[in-house]
């Protein structure tokens, strides 16, 4: 295995709550003992539901907040501090409507990081802006426009161009496609993969759902309540999910085939408050398989080939059967025709 580009060792993040005059101070542990690594050119998907800490982790990696404890290594060293960090890691955020300064034109937005880091001179700026715009599939004509005149997908492309302007080695895509229409999500997902193929940038793809993740990531890490409960190569993880929570996530994702939901696995209840964590395994309150040991001992993260899982019962669970149904033949035929026609138009 190649040396990792980014490595997190037992990273922890605490938030102090209730800093008011009379409120009692409480500590919320958003991340607890996170081990994670991303290889150069790799896409790691970080998946979990709201409150699991995935966005906090993304912000820590991007340098927007410090970790409380643990070690972060970038290329074997602690990441650069201050301005130089921007050359290493960039972030693309979820909300395409709030992520761009509305008072700056697209051209200014894309030129700003390049100018700040001295990567262009005044003279070479327009050429670099045009190059970045074409890299994200936008016509040069958008440079003088302002974000409010663009659609959500176009803004997200601008955000990606801006992230690319400093030539980072790693881009954190924090729910970068979640707010977009499904058909546009596919555009942006293609764009990210395309850029990765061209520039070799690594991606930390943070998502609350699994469907896109299956498609674009090399490895997946599943988070629950501030812990990584399972991680592994994508194909393996989807074919043989070892943690009950991963199974539940896969099972709960609605498939576009009628009647496919009949025998899915149901989770009861909701994620407990991170201020009142369950004893032992954090997932046990919702786990259909939980036994006594789950309430007593916090399951350690153990290696299973290239994967890791933190579950006492990983070896005792019933064999997993993937229920992903095949789309109807006529639908497949229609999609194939659509794909062929679209490809012909794109080529033209």
């Amino acid at each position: 295995m190649t040396a990792p580009l980014l490595e997190l060792r037992t990273v922890r993040k605490d938030f102090a709550l209730g800093q008011g005059l009379f409120a009692k101070r409480r500590i919320l542990t958003a991340l607890d003992g996170i081990d994670l690594s991303i290889a150069p050119g790799e896409t790691l998907a970080l998946v979990g539901e709201s409150g699991c800490g995935k966005s906090t982790l993304g912000r820590i990696v991007a340098g927007l907040m410090p970790a409380t404890a643990g070690e972060i290594l970038f290329d074997g060293h602690p990441p650069a501090r201050g301005k130089a960090r921007a050359r290493q890691i960039q972030i693309v955020m979820q909300d395409p409507f709030g992520a761009l300064n509305p008072k700056m034109s697209v051209g200014e937005l894309i030129a700003e990081p390049a100018l700040l880091h001295g990567l262009v001179t005044r003279g070479t700026t327009p050429a670099r802006v045009a190059e970045l715009l074409s890299l994200v599939g936008l016509p040069e004509g958008v440079a003088p426009r302002y974000p409010h005149a663009l659609s959500g997908g176009q803004r997200q492309r601008v955000a990606i161009a801006r992230a690319l302007a400093t030539d980072p080695k790693l881009i954190v895509a924090d729910e970068a496609v979640s707010a977009l229409d499904v058909s546009v999500q596919a555009q942006i997902a293609n764009l990210l993969k395309d850029i990765q193929a061209r520039t070799g940038v690594s991606l930390l793809f943070i998502s609350h759902g699994l469907s896109l993740v299956h498609h674009i990531s090399d490895r997946v890490a599943v988070m629950y309540l501030g812990r990584i409960v399972e991680d592994g190569p994508t194909a393996d993880l989807f074919a043989r999910p070892r943690h009950p929570y991963t199974r539940a996530l896969i099972s709960a994702t609605p498939e576009p085939v009628p009647g496919s939901s009949a025998d899915r696995m149901h989770l009861t209840g909701e994620v407990p408050s991170p201020l009142a964590l369950p004893s032992g395994c954090r997932f046990r309150t919702r786990c259909p398989h939980a036994t006594d040991i789950c309430a007593e001992v916090d399951p350690p993260r153990t290696a299973e080939g290239a994967a890791h899982v933190a579950c006492h019962l990983a070896h005792r669970l019933p064999a997993y059967q993937s229920q992903t149904p095949e789309p109807a033949p006529r639908l497949q035929q229609a999609i194939a025709l659509y794909r062929a026609a679209a490809a012909r138009l794109d080529a033209a």
Partner: peptide, 8 residues
């Protein structure tokens, strides 16, 4: 719409 779903 169906074709743009990752599952397809």
């Amino acid at each position: 719409l169906l074709g743009s779903m990752p599952q397809m």
